[in-house]
Design a binder for these strands. Structure first.
Length: 260
DNA sequence: ATGGTCGGCTACCGA
């Protein structure tokens, strides 16, 4: 069972890349972020033609998440609970039946949070992380295989940046931000990429600007958090870095976990 | 070196 997460930075601009990648990589479940379209604008037919079920939680112009799955959805939930005023489309959950039992998968797009001086940005990010913590605590009580996959907009440690000194004033690398991710993980999650290497140079994002890709000036901000029951089924993880070198790439690349 | 590049959408915002 191959589960991938990929911030595609606009599904309409990335449809050729997305189709190519699905054919090439053959994920069973793909979590997408920043689809940047309303649900009606998602190129559903092209994806369904490849044998995927499609569930989206879209928004006009920015944000928006989706789950593509070769397995039928038993259940779908849209939006992170905990704030009825929050209109931003950043969270979708799908539940699947597998030979090894239920599998619950979330595609999340955690707020960027910059600049850190603005409460509507950085405060929103920290409050969103607190809501995610509360939601995850509740879900873990089910004792199911659960994967929280997505663009967390969090650099967990200095080795997760080529140039950590560039990020000291950035919302992605604040002590409070990193502490909130650590607190979430300490509920009992195992991050798939970190589980296979702690050697660094496992970046998932390279900025379009200033030749970041050419200089390998990247960061690791796309993560797959596995519940104990999912971690028990964990076999392998990888980053599909070659996708960043394609024509008209997203600034993120897919990160993948293989479960039994 | 205080720049630079994208996507979505039409005057800028978000990243």
């Amino acid at each position: 069972m191959k589960i991938a997460t990929w911030n595609i930075n606009g599904v309409k601009a990335r449809i050729d890349n997305l189709v190519h990648w699905l054919n090439d990589s053959q994920p069973d479940i793909a979590c997408l972020q920043e689809i940047k379209t309303v649900d009606e604008g998602f190129p559903r037919a092209e994806i369904e033609a490849l044998g995927y079920h499609v569930e989206t939680h879209g928004q006009k112009g920015f944000n928006g998440v989706a789950i593509l799955s070769k397995l039928r959805f038993d259940e779908v939930n849209r939006g992170l609970p905990g704030d009825d005023e929050d209109e931003q489309a950043r969270f979708i959950e799908g539940v699947f039946s597998t030979p090894h039992g239920a599998l619950r998968v979330v595609s999340l797009y955690l707020p960027n949070g910059n600049p850190i001086t603005e409460d509507r940005k950085y405060g929103y990010k920290l409050r969103w992380m607190d809501r995610l913590h509360r939601w995850a605590q509740e879900r873990l009580e089910l004792e199911e295989a659960l994967i929280l996959a997505g663009d967390y907009n969090v650099i967990p440690q200095p080795i997760d940046a080529r140039r950590p000194e560039d990020w000291v004033n950035d919302a992605l690398f604040q002590p409070e931000t990193r502490g909130a991710l650590r607190k979430l993980e300490y509920l009992g999650f195992t991050e798939a990429i970190r589980a296979v290497t702690d050697a660094g140079d496992t970046f998932t994002f390279w900025d379009y600007q200033a030749g970041a890709w050419q200089k390998n000036n990247g960061i690791r901000i796309d993560h797959l958090l596995m519940s104990p029951e999912a971690a028990n089924r964990f076999e392998a993880a990888s980053i599909e870095k070659h996708v960043r070198a394609w024509e008209k790439p997203s600034d993120h690349v897919p990160a993948v976990a293989i479960l039994q």
